[in-house]
Design a protein around this nucleic acid. Sequence first.
RNA 1: CGGGGUGUAGCGUAGUUUGGCUAGCGCGCGUGGUUUGGGACCACGAGGUCGCAGGUUCGAAUCCUGUCACCCCGGCCA
Length: 477
Amino acid sequence: MPAEKRVEKITDMNHDFPQWYTDVVRKADLADYSETGGCIIVRPYGYGVWELIQAQLDAKFKETGHENMYMPMLIPESLLELEKDHVDGFAPEVAWVTHAGSEALTERLYVRPTSEPLFSAHFAKTIQSWRDLPRLYNQWCTVMRWEKTTRPFLRGREFLWQEGHTAHATAEESLAEALKILDIYATFSEEVLCIPVIKGQKTEREKFAGAQSTYTFEALMHDGKALQSGTTHDFGDKFARVFNIQYTSKDNKLQYAYQSSWGVSSRLIGALIMVHGDNNGLVLPPGIAPIQIMVVPIAAHKPGVTEKAEEIRANLAKTLRAKIDTTDHAPGWKFAECEMKGIPLRVEIGPKDMENGQCILVRRDTGEKITTQIENVTQKATELLEEIRQNLYARAKERLASQTFTAQSLPQLKSILDTTPGFVKAMWCGADACEVRVKEEATATSRCIPFTQENLSNTCFVCGEKAEKMVVWSRAY
RNA sequence: CGGGGUGUAGCGUAGUUUGGCUAGCGCGCGUGGUUUGGGACCACGAGGUCGCAGGUUCGAAUCCUGUCACCCCGGCCA
């Protein structure tokens, strides 16, 4: 890891983490603020990351039998009101369309904060028989939630996401679907994004508005705060009963369908920044880096340098996302630019190297410089990208372990979070009152009830009554 | 919604207390030249209704009134 901070324009992350985050977003050219309050402009480089996330997840969804479709952005008010928990959860941050031109609409429309009502209404119309099940749908779109406090990629009024909506014949199947997708998400997060996660179930208090149960994968950011990176929900037949989604079973009985929904958003980009980034800027895992390797010619005006650099780029580009920087900036500028943008590998090629038929590969994650023969550069780069992927994951996993603690009492949990923020594991009795006390006294929330349970003690760390589950607590974004 | 703060060139700012501004500086931008292995340098140049609307004054970025926008801290919240 580059020891010294080489880019002055980025705030030191240990000094002011939120400012560091904002600096990275802007300097890495991921996003910009827009004229529309609370909504960001996703710049080409940031959108490039999103496209790579999208392409890989989309392939996984399709492998598991899901189909993409598209629902309207606007939903009539009458549909929102049908499911009570759902409306209670979303109504405060819903944006309304009330007029067409100067004429008031007879029924107000709201901009989707999520599309359960539309999918449910559609399922009700199109599902009649057990032969129609399961229905495995997904859509890539944006949604709108009128947040009061916004931060690029972490919380915005409009953001990019994908929402899967499925209907099944049985409760077992909708639950299995929610768990299957959670695995797809978590695997993608760990293997491609190099972000280790904790999988588990949300408590009643933290679950999705209208869900029967919510599952989540939680990641830990550099500053010790948690980020809910994605969720899957099992609705059971709750929405089906409200929207009247019924089918005739094999034995000719009228049954309610069981549903799931699940989503990840452009918030994943925020997670990438806050898990891997350092004081020189962004650090992107190779799997989602729009540019995996940047060729930087040194003394490009000297005879043959640009040509050789372009030849190297063309070779790399056969199998990798490779680019060349032919701008007239000084080399130091280009190096800093590569680092701010988190490009995993950089190639330096100048007159001195050409004399020896070699070039220099520089790793973003470690700063290490590797001299290699030009004819081997693609092979070497390919190996290094895989090493970088493994190193980023290993590094993040190590930090997660070092920032995970256990607490036996509420004061202890508070003291841990005040001094060394991170995940805190503690036993919980299951009572909502205890969860509320943690929130009020330690400003921490339950992140999840991990699937992998440990028995830390037999009593609740808040009230001392009999403990039911180990819960992971944290301060969160 | 409560408390605090800020609006001056694309960005960051000085100047406001004590009215004299033809509004200064850095970065960035344009042209030409010299450079090029960790954010190069020189020269010349372009760019401003000082958030907006009123008012006071010989004179307003500066004082007064109103208004709008944004930011921070609380409250509320996927």
